[in-house]
Structure formats: C-alpha cells, structure tokens
Design a binder for these strands. Structure first.
Lengths: 235, 235
DNA sequence: GAGGCTTGAATACGTCGTACATGTTGCGTT
DNA sequence: AACGCAACATGTACGACGTATTCAAGCCTC
C-alpha cells in the first residue's frame, strides 16, 4: 500500500524506538502497552507490532498476556547480556550504573581470560596482541584518543577470543562498549594513563612467553586500574 | 480455523522445535530455511513462522535476507548468554563443551561475586546463605542428591544476587544449569565431596563476618574443585 | 569471438488488512 | 457470596501486494 519514509525495515524502526524507551524507564514496570495503540503511534501494521513485541518478549523486557496487554517487566528480569539491551542502556539515563556493572564483570572475566590466552593463544594471536599493544604505545600521546581506543578494544578482543572460551569471546562487544563509553563520557582531553599502556605491553609479553600466572595478575592490575578510574569519574 | 493439539501456543511449539534443532547443529551454518517450507512442516500459518524467525534472529541464530531465505549463522555469532540458547545447548549433543564453557565462566565470576557479597550482603541474605550451607551439610550423605542440589543452587544464587551486580545476578540460571547438569550427567550415585560442603559453610561464615578476601579465595577453591571434577568426568 | 556490463524476470521475504478463535477479566445476576 | 456471562486484547489464519536481491539472458565493447 504505502512505502513511505522508513529507514530500512519498519520492524527495526519500531524496535529501536520501543526498546530504548523501555530500558530508559519511560514505561515503569507493570505498565501496559496495547497493540493497537502502538499500531497507531508508529503507523505500522499489526504484523510489525507483534513481531517487535515478540522480540522484546524474547529479551524479557515485556510479557504479553491475553486480555491484559503487553506488560513491562521489572529490570531484574531483563536479559542484560543481550547486546541490544546493553547498547540501549548505555545510551540511556542509567548509563553510569551500567558502565559500573560491566566494568565489574570485566574485572572478573578478563584476568581469567588472559590466563587461558597465555596457554592457548596461537602465534598469530600473539602477534596481533603485540601489534595492538605497540599501537597503543604509539597513540598514547598527543590527543590521538580515537586511534588509541581502536587498539585498546582490539587488544582486549584478541585476549577474550584467544581464551578459547566462547562465553568469554562473546564479551568482546561488552568490553568495546565499556571502553568506548569511557572515552566518550570521561576525559576526552587527557591522554591515557602511561602505566596502563605499559601493563598492556607486559601482558602481551607474558602471553607470548606462555606465562599464565603473570598474564592473569597483570590483567588484574589493568582492570583494577579501570575500576579506580571509574570511581574517580562517576558518582 | 483450527486449534488442535498444541501445548499452549503454536509460537512456543515451533520455537522449541526449531531452536534446539539449530543449536544441535542439525542445520549446518549457511543452511537455508524457507518460510513456506517451515509453514508446511509445522502446519502453522505464516504469522507464527515469521514471529519465530524474528525471535531466532534476535538470538543471532539465523539471519533473514530477502530473496535468499533464512540462513543459519555460525555458532560464533550466537547469543550464547540467552537463557534459552543455554538450555537448548545443554540439552543437545555438545552439552559437554557447553558445560565446560559455563564452568570456566563460573570460575571467573563467582569468586569476585563472593568478595562483593561479603561487603554488600544484607543480614537476610547472610541468613539464607548459612541456612542453605547447613542444608547442604544435612543432605550431603545418603543419596539425597536432589535435595542437596536444591540447596547448592540456592546458595550460589544468593551469592550472585548479594554481589549487588545485576550482570552477576543474571548468571544464577547459568549456575543452576551447570549444577543440575553435573548432577544428572555425572555421578548420580556418589555423595558430594565433603570438602566442597565444608567450603560452602566457610564461605557463608566469611560473608557473615564481612571478610571479602576470605570469601573470594574460598569460593575460588570451590570452583577450582568443580573444574577438576569436570576434568575427571568429561572427555 | 570472448569478456564484461546492463537489463530484465523470477523469487522469497516484508508489510498490510481482515476475519475469527481463545483465554481473561470484570461485572452483573441469582 | 458464588456463579456464569459478556466484553476485550491477544493469538492465529489467510490472501494480497510491495520490494529487494539474485540469476541469467542479451547487448555492447574490446
């Protein structure tokens, strides 16, 4: 019938409007959304609304029950590991808390991942690691934060992937979100902490030398520093 | 038109058939599912099939592209933290690997969670902890594995929740899955390791006394033991 | 004549609208 | 107060058209 504006896909459009609204808390837990209401508000067919609802339901953001409507679930029920939920929450009002939660998760996971990576990393991965560590060194001075961030994210992604654990590997996006969020949010002007840069280089060394103990404890220093840094910046 | 057999909801029925099939590897990555084919196979309308596809897509199990169909994604793309994906994989053929991955994740997360719990647990949570620890002691002998499992799961759930970190709290189901899987799969006959039982009691003590260091290192012993146990049982 | 580029038709998903079934909720009746 | 009925919102089904992507045939160029 019509093929108006739309980005690419009505489904994505409505989802990217409703999802962030819910995770932002615009609809308090227990709120009821009616299908036909959403139909009108976003000017789409029932099909689209229902599919969006089904996706939100699969993220445990809402629960759909007959005769009552689509009720918003409390935050404790949400699938907080869903990449989209993480993105939405990082873009919303409780971004500080989200950043904290994710950093704590990092502090638990990354040291163990680094220890495993020291035992399992392939030569190629070791090379990538040192390459990115050197890249961090090269971009650590003179306001090259964007370039530094790229290497930082890539470094941690390799560590997580090299751990050989699929659950760890899947946290690459989380770490990327945290690091990006920190760069954007925090000190856009100050250069990165030189001590942190050095630690990354030493982690790369430890992995290359298959020293699991050292890789783990060095990484623990990195994430401890990250948490301390967060304490300074965030309320 | 028809409302035959069905459990409760065609949507859930088809999803519980397709999801496990995909995670089990019945459709190798790159396989193409056509909508009308699924329609016929499960005797449902397009509406239902499309909603199921949308949910599977939100789990990154499949990707739907025009003119080509619904293609199955490689396992690296899957949202392995989705509770349903975890359940499906634990019920499927690569359950051993899944159990391993999740146990490694546990070994990284739980000690840190215990450390935080020691600082943040409410008196009620401390009480629950000791209660379940004592429950484990009481049911640790004489083939009461089912009852023991209940206390074990509850114990770790309280720890994760008391950590005050929502990401940790959400891993309660994961731990439950691992512990249940271990009980079902492994030694259904032998009583639990007495050393592990004692460690749980001591963790409860440490949390009650707000000794974060001790709670963390004791929990580390628990999960290290769990991993060692897994090495004995699994290939 | 061989190769690459453009154009067109076939195809399977995307969206729409309507109709009916089903389970719930809440109210009115007994 | 207990029961049952009617209204309501979601669940499911069916049919139609829009749309993008792919594949192949046909044209042009070298």
């Amino acid at each position: 019938m019509d093929k108006e504006q739309g980005g690419q896909g009505q489904h994505a459009r409505v989802l990217d409007a409703l999802g962030p609204a819910i995770t932002a808390g615009d609809y308090p837990p227990g709120s009821v959304l009616r299908t036909d209401e959403l139909e009108q508000r976003y000017a789409v067919s029932r099909t689209v609304v229902r599919e969006v609802i089904r996706v939100l339901e699969s993220m445990h953001l809402v629960a759909s029950r007959r005769r009552v409507g689509v009720t918003v679930l409390p935050a404790e029920e949400w699938n907080v590991y869903d990449p989209r939920v993480i993105r939405w929450r990082l873009a919303g009002p409780d971004r500080p808390r989200q950043l904290r939660s994710l950093t704590v998760l990092r502090s638990a996971v990354e040291p163990v991942a680094a220890g495993l990576a020291a035992r399992l990393a392939t030569p190629e991965q070791c090379a990538e690691l040192t390459s990115h560590a050197l890249g961090m060194v090269a971009t650590s001075r003179g306001r090259q934060l964007a370039e530094y961030l790229v290497h930082d994210v890539a470094f941690h992604r390799v560590i997580l992937r090299a751990s050989g654990n699929e659950m760890f590997a899947r946290l690459g996006d989380v770490v990327a979100g945290v690091l990006t969020g920190r760069t954007q949010h925090g000190v856009m002007f100050a250069d990165p902490d030189p001590a942190a840069v050095t630690l990354h280089v030493r982690v790369a060394e430890a992995v290359r030398e298959r020293d699991a103990e050292r890789a783990e404890s060095l990484t623990r220093e990195i994430v401890t520093g990250a948490m301390a840094e967060l304490d300074v910046l965030a309320p």
